[in-house]
Simulated scan of single mutants.
Amino acid sequence: MSRYRRPRIGGASIFFTVALARRGDDLLLREIALLRAAMARTRAERGFRIDACVVLPDHLHCVWTLPEGDADYPTRWRLIKARFSRGVPIGERRASHCRRAERGIWQRRYWEHHIRDEADHAAHVRYCWMNPVKHGFVEAPEEWPFSSIHRDIATGRRWAR
């Protein structure tokens, strides 16, 4: 089993990219309600703030802030991925998925970046908002329905400076 060197900073803000195993699939959008339910249940049990989130067909980006003294984001992602995976039919799996009792839906790893300061935080929130534009799905971030930008506009929250 791999041992990752990850910062263990309680209360940190962290940017994540989490992707499906099959790039080009649209499973996350087809099953958006299931993904939202998995994230909501995990948030209710383990508490964390979602500062920004955007869901694209085959990957998602989030900025989370963990509770003070808590650095356990790997467990949160494991729960979200498992809860989502249990709700979709088992597809084609490689032998390595079977050996590990995996459904083969998600890439095993994800990318994380610990936010350094307010400017870094604002840049990563903007990245979430702009990602659907970058991928050519929409011309303006507000046009993408699967983004926290709508919540932030409605509440008047302004992360970006």
Results as ranks from 00 to 15, higher is better:
63 V>T: 03
63 V>N: 01
64 W>C: 05
64 W>K: 04
66 L>V: 04
66 L>F: 08
67 P>M: 08
67 P>R: 13
67 P>D: 11
67 P>N: 12
68 E>P: 13
68 E>R: 15
69 G>Q: 14
69 G>H: 14
70 D>G: 11
70 D>N: 15
70 D>C: 15
70 D>T: 07
71 A>T: 04
71 A>C: 14
72 D>K: 06
73 Y>S: 04
73 Y>C: 00
74 P>F: 10
74 P>H: 12
77 W>H: 06
78 R>K: 15
78 R>W: 03
78 R>Q: 11
79 L>M: 08
79 L>P: 00
80 I>T: 05
81 K>Y: 01
82 A>P: 06
82 A>I: 02
83 R>S: 13
83 R>V: 03
84 F>G: 07
84 F>R: 08
84 F>W: 07
84 F>Q: 04
84 F>D: 06
86 R>G: 13
86 R>C: 13
88 V>E: 00
89 P>F: 08
89 P>Q: 13
90 I>M: 08
90 I>H: 10
93 R>L: 09
93 R>Y: 12
93 R>T: 14
94 R>N: 00
94 R>W: 13
94 R>F: 12
96 S>M: 06
97 H>I: 04
97 H>P: 01
99 R>W: 11
99 R>A: 12
99 R>I: 02
100 R>T: 04
102 E>V: 02
102 E>W: 10
103 R>A: 11
103 R>G: 11
104 G>K: 09
105 I>N: 05
105 I>K: 01
106 W>P: 06
107 Q>C: 07
108 R>P: 13
109 R>P: 02
109 R>M: 04
109 R>A: 10
110 Y>W: 14
111 W>P: 00
111 W>N: 04
112 E>K: 02
112 E>R: 05
112 E>P: 02
112 E>G: 09
112 E>F: 05
113 H>C: 08
114 H>Y: 15
115 I>R: 09
115 I>T: 07
115 I>N: 09
116 R>F: 08
116 R>I: 07
117 D>F: 12
117 D>L: 09
117 D>N: 15
117 D>Y: 13
119 A>M: 09
121 H>G: 00
121 H>P: 00
122 A>F: 01
123 A>V: 03
123 A>C: 09
126 R>M: 05
126 R>P: 02
127 Y>T: 01
127 Y>V: 00
127 Y>H: 15
129 W>L: 05
129 W>E: 08
129 W>Q: 07
130 M>N: 14
130 M>A: 11
131 N>Q: 08
131 N>Y: 00
131 N>W: 01
132 P>C: 09
132 P>V: 03
132 P>A: 11
132 P>H: 11
132 P>D: 10
132 P>M: 10
132 P>L: 12
133 V>P: 09
133 V>A: 12
134 K>Q: 14
134 K>P: 02
134 K>I: 03
135 H>Y: 07
135 H>I: 04
136 G>A: 13
136 G>L: 15
137 F>E: 04
137 F>T: 01
138 V>T: 00
138 V>E: 04
138 V>M: 00
138 V>S: 07
138 V>F: 05
138 V>C: 10
138 V>A: 04
139 E>N: 10
140 A>C: 03
140 A>L: 06
141 P>C: 10
141 P>I: 01
141 P>H: 10
141 P>S: 14
142 E>Y: 10
142 E>L: 14
143 E>K: 12
143 E>P: 04
144 W>C: 06
145 P>G: 11
146 F>I: 01
147 S>M: 01
148 S>D: 06
148 S>F: 13
148 S>I: 00
149 I>W: 08
149 I>N: 06
150 H>W: 14
150 H>P: 05
